[in-house]
Amino acid sequence: MAKTIFVVDDSATILMSVKNNLEIAGYTVESAADGVIALDKLKSGLKPDLIITDINMPNMNGLELIEHTRALPNFRFTPILILTTENQQSSRDQAKKLGATGWLVKPVGGSDLLKIIKQVLPGA
C-alpha cells in the first residue's frame, strides 16, 4: 500500500514541487497551507505515514504544528520532517525537542528528498 505523506507549506510553489516529486515516486500526497489547516486534517482522520512541514507559515507555524501533533495520540511516533530555508542550530534544537524527526534545508532536490524519506520511513 502506498505510503501517505502529508506536506504542509504556505508556498504553493513548494507544495506543487514536493507533491510532484513524491507522487512520481509513488506516494500518496496530502497537503495543507498552514498549521491550522494541517492540524484540522490530522484531527479529522488523516493518518499519514510521514509529515513534512515548513516552519514559517501564517496562522500556525511548523513548530507549533509539531507540538500540537505530538500531543495527538495517533501521532506520537509519526516521523515529522521539517522542510525550511532556515538553518539555525537553535531552531533545529527546538524542533527536535518538540518532536521533529529531521530537518531539511530548502531547496532539496527530488532525489535527496526521496532518499531521506526512505531513511525515516521503514518499508517506504
Binding site: 504556505d10 508556498s11 510553489t13 513548494i14 514541487s17 515548513d54 514559517n56 507559515m57 501564517p58 525550511t84 530555508t85 532556515e86 530548502k106 531547496p107
Partner: peptide, 17 residues
C-alpha cells in the same frame, strides 16, 4: 517583522527550486 521574514524566507526558498 515575523511576517516579513516569512515572506522573504519563503520566496528565497521557492527561488532555490
Amino acid at each position: 517583522l515575523v511576517e516579513l521574514f516569512r515572506l522573504v524566507h519563503t520566496l528565497k526558498g521557492n527561488s532555490g527550486l
